[in-house]
């Protein structure tokens, strides 16, 4: 069972992750609608999530900015970051910041769930 933290500003997408990934047997340990909220929440956790699903386009702090913050707070080194975006032009920047997987929208929630499983097998 993989523990997952979801960062996405759209509630419908957060719910989709929650349902789809739970169906595969993963555990959602928290969600946030922007990067700032996410960092506060994760820092308050006793143990960091195995996976952080990070959307790029969000208010307050976007995915790349949140990623930099996660690295600064050493969270990124403890969790695998799955970076999700519709914009392929930021792939290189995201990879350079150490993301584990760059996932381009649109994607299949079930395939994503399997991908996470495989990531830990």
């Amino acid at each position: 069972m993989v523990s997952i933290f979801i960062i996405d500003d759209e509630e419908t997408i957060r719910y989709l992750y929650q349902e789809g990934l739970t169906m595969e047997g993963h555990q959602i340990i928290g969600t946030a609608q922007n990067g700032m909220q996410a960092i506060e929440n994760i820092e308050g956790m006793k143990s960091y999530p195995d996976v952080i699903i990070l959307d790029h386009r969000m208010p307050i702090k976007n995915g790349i900015e949140t990623l930099k913050e996660l690295r600064k707070n050493k969270i990124a080194s403890k969790s695998k970051i799955l970076f999700v975006t519709a914009d392929p032009t930021i792939r290189e920047e995201a990879n350079n910041l150490g993301v584990s997987l760059f996932i381009q929208k649109p994607f299949s929630i079930l395939k994503l769930a399997k991908l996470i499983t495989n990531l830990f097998n």
């Binding site: 419908t12 989709l16 789809g20 929208k105 649109p106 994607f107 079930l110």
Partner: peptide, 18 residues
């Protein structure tokens, strides 16, 4: 086209998959 509709498609596609 490249963001908002892809996002919407991802959601609907996901729920239909479920």
């Amino acid at each position: 086209l490249s963001h908002d509709f892809l996002n919407a498609n991802t959601s609907v596609h996901g729920y239909l998959e479920l």
